[in-house]
Design a protein around this nucleic acid. Structure first.
Lengths: 104, 104
DNA sequence: TGAATATTTGAACAATTGTAAAATTATGTG
DNA sequence: CACATAATTTTACAATTGTTCAAATATTCA
């Protein structure tokens, strides 16, 4: 196991998928949503709106994008639609960013 | 130190900065460039071009964007311009993504 | 000086994202 | 059950960002 030079050679498809995930996370409001969802609970759009300062319509677009990418997931219950994390591992990325955030 | 509920409450500015970094990483070709640069060495645009399959001009735009964000850094030597990592910690994010990539 | 090499810049077109208003789905009430 | 209200999404257009291609800049070498 060599240390200094770690040529990973990630496949083209993986790189595309990873880039897509990053794209999916690349907005402050989406990070806020993930901060909320990472406790594993489900939150309605209204719940989320209480935490973030943006218009309902724009939030809906952001949620739809994250859902398409596969980061989150949703279901309807009554007149509410609930969202939850679809990729649990995503919080690891977040942990990582958080642990080195002071240097950013 | 509570475990199940980890409300980090990252500041708005940090969230913006993190989102910007993610945005800076959200392209397959940029990830390829980072894969190359993470050994800590400096690479000329020509060196990078040998590794990635895109047009010089487009690569230049991508490099400029990453440089503006502060992810990479450059200097000229003769007719070449060399790029290198500006945020060493960025490879941690990459490590993290890599370690959980199988599940993505 | 001028040809060749390395890289960036700028402008035009394409794609993506944001905004605001209208549409959809579900519930509750007289 | 028709209607008002609430929750969320959809649509259409404006604004921003990415891509391509041609031209420009900087450096070296003959």
């Amino acid at each position: 196991m060599q240390n200094t030079i770690s040529k990973r050679k990630i496949s083209t498809e993986k790189l595309a998928k990873i880039a897509e995930i990053f794209q999916g996370l690349a907005y402050p409001v989406r990070l806020q949503v993930l901060e909320l969802l990472e406790d594993g609970k489900d939150y309605s759009v209204g719940d989320i709106l209480d935490k973030v300062q943006i218009e309902a319509s724009l939030l809906s677009h952001h949620l739809a994008k994250m859902k398409n990418i596969g980061i989150i997931d949703s279901y309807r219950q009554g007149r509410n639609i609930y969202y939850r994390l679809a990729i649990k591992e995503i919080t690891k990325v977040f942990d990582c960013i958080y642990s080195c955030e002071l240097k950013l």
